[in-house]
Design a protein around this nucleic acid. Structure first.
Lengths: 140, 140
DNA sequence: CCGCATCCTCTCGGATACTG
DNA sequence: CAGTATCCGAGAGGATGCGG
């Protein structure tokens, strides 16, 4: 396991201070953009949608639905709409019959996916440890 | 805005392939550890709890409740329990009267917070753009 | 094929009151 | 002080059928 230097801890604290320090912590959550934006972007379904789009570059609705296994029509279209609104995803409809719709990451979305991936990779690496923790904890 | 090289995109795809490639996408979500672990760690409340603990190092229950503004007793204790189970947070109770309980990040939790922070910083930086997107989209 | 509309279920989460 | 217990409402999300 990686080790943590005191220096690193101090830098972390500085970063958090920069993030939270200037807001009055008594403010309602609506006024915290980080939380607001996070609630869209790091939603469980959205995360998977974005990663699969990062992988395939372009996906149609039903294809996406297959990869993001278990998602319902309703939730998928809901999430796509929000992701489009926030600028991560672009939607292109071809007026054929039957209609064809393609979803693609925007450049902005691509950047986000790269950040997100750093986190999910870390999680993937550490998930055995985490699941073991959880197991052990359950036994207490 | 940063630009994205084609090289970077290819690397991103490789990473995602490594993450998702080996699993059968038809498997039920329960079998995807990334998703499972993410649902705990990147929960909206958990994120805030972890960041505040990263900032203060040690916080008591009611102090935490003040900083994570708007969280209820129930949810706070729930989240803390799960975060403890997964190994991000340690709980220490002092048998005084009245009782005193202190929550601290574990070293593991500290590492996670650093990763998480990279993401939230990016979000903080880009939230004006995202909110503007959202606004514009609403007008269409 | 895309995805909205409907219905219905069920969990999450807020408020409050209470105990070791 | 640090939670647990209880109640309750809101809304997320699943299933299905239909329409463009």
């Amino acid at each position: 396991m990686e080790t943590i230097t005191e220096n690193q801890k101090v830098r972390t604290i500085k970063k958090i201070e920069k993030m939270f320090g200037h807001i009055d912590y008594k403010n309602p959550p609506e006024l915290c953009p980080v939380r607001d934006v996070m609630s869209v972007a790091s939603d469980q379904w959205s995360t998977l949608i974005l990663l699969w789009l990062g992988y395939f570059k372009t996906l149609r609705f039903n294809k996406l639905k297959k990869y993001v296994y278990g998602i319902s029509n309703k939730v998928l279209s809901q999430r796509l709409k929000v992701l489009e609104a926030d600028g991560y995803v672009s939607r292109k409809a071809y007026p054929e019959v039957p209609i064809r719709v393609e979803y693609t990451l925007t450049d902005f979305g691509q950047l986000y996916v790269e950040k997100l991936l750093d986190l999910t990779e870390w999680i993937q690496t550490n998930s055995p440890k985490i699941l073991a923790n959880r197991e052990r904890y359950g036994l207490l």
